[in-house]
């Protein structure tokens, strides 16, 4: 399979760079993780005139059975449009939707070298002494994403579904509830109770309609040994929406460190302070509370979908089961704790 991928990647690069000669692949390896995409690290070489070139590339293709239905095209345009706007986003090079090359849609982007990605599931404090420094950057970058006016980035804005600010929460909740209903063969009393609470207690419209990354968390960025964030990854869920959606997801207790830091970086209050400073926005605690529960529900939708893909044998990568079992367990318990707290408040008011 890997050899096959190498040959196909070489053929594709030759097609994309007809002037290049001696196009070849020195190495190719699949990167672990990423349940909705297959990601390959490819070391390519070619001759450009008299110059020998060697470059690290990432090929990111749809998996045969992804967790959620995402469009590779939208993700490509996110990388392509946001690169060079002051955000650490890798340069996207080619988008390919013709299945003749790798059977499914894919895109090619630059490899960010000398960096690593944190574990999404371990609460071990892997950022070490750089945790606060990385946290400062992580929440600043998110704030800077909020500063962008979507219309000023037409390449990305024009391929996203428009939404009226007052409809943002309903559109998101409807979408994820539909995913849950589609993929869950069993009744979900905890999730349904959470969804009812969300519908009965809607948040205000967003302070500003922003690009929402959709999966902004530790585990979706690359950092170097000096503690510098060099790339924000996984833009496949990007959409227009409320910036609190990303902030709530980034600070979700699922990604918490053993010391209680959000994303294993900084405490929640510090994260909010950095984000407010960078975004120029003010956090509305009641709205934030809504988006936190929403993200537990959204998480459940993603974990349930992963389990459904595995159970239907559309994607038998064992990584699909971990979210369905482990993350689902965590998020359901967070939902019930949220509801118990609200019930207690209701009792105190009665």
């Amino acid at each position: 399979m890997t050899e096959d991928i190498a040959g196909r990647c070489a053929a594709y690069l030759k097609y994309r760079m007809p002037e290049a000669e001696d196009v070849g692949i020195a190495s190719v390896g699949r990167i672990f993780g990423g349940a909705s995409c297959e990601t390959y690290r490819v070391r390519a070489f070619w001759t450009d005139g008299e110059t020998k070139v060697e470059r690290g590339l990432i090929f990111r293709r749809d998996s045969a059975g992804g967790i959620i239905e995402t469009e590779r095209k939208v993700e490509f345009h996110a990388y392509h449009a946001l690169h060079g706007l002051g955000l650490p986003v890798p340069e996207a090079l080619y988008l390919e939707e013709d299945p003749q090359w790798l059977e499914r849609p894919f895109f090619v982007m630059e490899e960010i070298e000398g960096c690593t990605v944190a574990s999404a599931i371990s609460p071990a404090l892997e950022f070490g002494e750089n945790a606060a420094k990385i946290g400062e950057q992580f929440f600043s970058i998110l704030g800077r994403l909020c500063r962008l006016t979507p219309e000023s980035v037409p390449e990305l804005h024009n391929c996203l579904e428009p939404v009226n600010p007052q409809d943002v929460w309903r559109r998101e909740l409807d979408y994820w509830e539909k995913e849950i209903d589609k993929d869950s063969p069993t009744p979900q009393p905890v999730i349904k109770a959470g969804i009812r609470w969300l519908r009965n207690n809607p948040p205000p419209p967003p302070q500003k309609l922003c690009f929402v990354h959709g999966d902004y968390r530790s585990g979706n960025f690359m950092f170097n040994p000096q503690g510098e964030i060099k790339a924000i990854l996984d833009w496949e869920l990007v959409h227009l929406g409320d910036p609190l959606e990303d902030l709530a997801w980034a600070t979700d207790p699922l990604w918490e460190g053993v010391d209680g830091t959000v994303g294993k970086m900084v405490m929640l209050a510090k994260a909010v302070e950095i984000w407010e400073r960078a975004s120029g926005l003010k956090l509305d605690p009641a709205a934030f509370k809504w988006w936190r529960l929403f993200n537990h529900i959204k998480g459940m939708a993603i974990w349930i979908s992963a389990g459904a893909e595995y159970a239907a044998k559309r994607n038998l990568d064992p990584i699909m089961v971990v979210p369905a079992w482990w993350a689902g367990d965590r998020h359901e318990r967070l939902i019930i704790q949220f509801l118990l707290d609200r019930n207690q408040e209701k009792g105190a008011q009665a």
Binding site: V190, A193, W325, D329, R333, I336, L339, L340
Partner: peptide
């Protein structure tokens, strides 16, 4: 809600 919390606690991983 207490039932749901107890049920989840029993299943916790």
């Amino acid at each position: 809600l207490d039932f749901l919390a107890s049920s989840l606690a029993r299943r916790a991983l």
